[in-house]
Design a protein around this nucleic acid. Structure first.
Lengths: 231, 231
DNA sequence: TCCCAAAACTGAATAGCATTCATTTTTAAA
DNA sequence: TTTAAAAATGAATGCTATTCAGTTTTGGGA
């Protein structure tokens, strides 16, 4: 009952979790094995089962700590930004920045947790997705401000942004982090925020928008992407 | 050497693959077991290992057949559509339609293959991503036509669209297919094609665009999405 | 400082599942 | 009908998560 009571236990649990992040982050869930985690954590294999029900339970525990770190950083980075669009841009930047800085956790989050049906039911998942409410609020704020299209359900917009960001991180991981995750941020975010269709569809001005920038940027970028085998 | 030689073998292989789609499509790769696949395919467990190196090899073989079916259907559905934007919209529809009709394969493709690093190196992967070149061509076509923003690398646009579509399918699967995958198509595609930011940013017309549609649609949709727990 | 009961930890034993392989059955050309 | 090669079989193997009976550590009380 006394807070000192579980201090020792907590320390070993932390050791186990830290080792688990390393091991799960370095290979797939299947390839990772408990014995290696135990060795890295300097505990017996049996000890792990005193802290976690099983291998999956250990995996699902991982996001708790990192989500807290993510949220703290997010809050800090959004401070002082007024406009919703700028907040969204900053959010996208921070999201990519965070996973770039935490590649082991990124692999666990994107390649294991994100597609695991069982994870959806856990406590860790609620934390993992908890901050996405904040994103929703920013979108609503932008719709009220008039800087974000109001004829769309904010949930759809939220899904769009998350989908794109998660997709980019996933592709980056699968390509062995060969390219810089932040390099594409500006273009991708610009696309999401501005849309890909030329400006003459709903609008009244046709030709002007159409020919905005011909192709200098395009052609030079094409080469970059080809080399880096993004797809 | 004679084509008749392997006919029998091919038949059992097909049986195994069909059983594998059912079993892998019903539970996770980890939870699925070879014995169940063997039982469903009405062969001995050992037989599977005469056709496939191991469990993973069997999983990776699955997309070969379905990718062909996907491409055939895609080609058919794009026929007769001239405009690149319409083609993209049709592509998005077909993509979602295909996975809606093939939920077992969808689970295998989105929740297992898509995030598997080893899969990226296989023959099956090249087929799996092969059709995405067609998508790229449509985007380039649209840029030349002037219907799609030309100041963007088409690869980025391609990633955006694929990312959003894959994300929607993934979320749908994780939520037990509770909602209709096609229900969100129009809005999501519209967002991708038109962008989420209000039209007054680059343009010259400010206030007019801002207030386009106030919020009737928004509020009614909000309810829908809340109930369906999309996020 | 020593005692001891509860809390933690340990690692050998167990169990489940993928994979192997020696053997049997089937195939189809001669 | 014969027979050698091709396929199929399933019991045996090995690997790894999980269990559990036993050992060590902890920390409050005498």
């Amino acid at each position: 009952m006394n807070p000192t009571h579980n201090r020792k236990k907590d320390m070993t649990r932390d050791q186990i979790v830290r080792a688990a992040i390393q091991v799960f982050g370095g290979k797939s869930y299947l390839e990772a094995n408990i014995s290696e985690i135990a060795q890295k954590a300097e505990v017996a294999e049996g000890t792990i089962y005193q802290h976690f029900k099983n291998k999956e339970d250990l995996l699902f525990f991982i996001p708790r700590e990192r989500t807290a770190a993510f949220c703290e950083g997010l809050e800090l980075h959004l401070q002082g930004i007024q406009d919703a669009s700028n907040k969204l841009a900053k959010f996208a930047w921070y999201y990519l920045y965070f996973f770039k800085e935490n590649p082991e956790y990124a692999r666990i989050a994107m390649l294991e947790l994100r597609v695991n049906k069982n994870f959806q039911k856990t406590k860790g998942y609620r934390l993992f997705r908890g901050w996405s409410d904040a994103l929703l609020d920013i979108i609503k704020e932008g719709q009220e401000e008039g800087t974000i299209r109001a004829d769309m359900d904010p949930h759809i917009v939220q899904e769009l942004l998350l989908g794109v960001l998660e997709h980019y991180v996933t592709r980056w991981l699968l390509k062995d982090e060969k390219w810089d995750l932040l390099e594409f941020r500006e273009h991708a975010v610009d696309l999401v925020l501005n849309g890909i269709r030329a400006r003459d569809v709903q609008g009244t001005k046709g030709e002007a928008a159409r020919k905005e920038k011909p192709s200098e940027i395009t052609s030079s970028q094409k080469k970059t992407f080809k080399n880096k085998q993004m797809v």
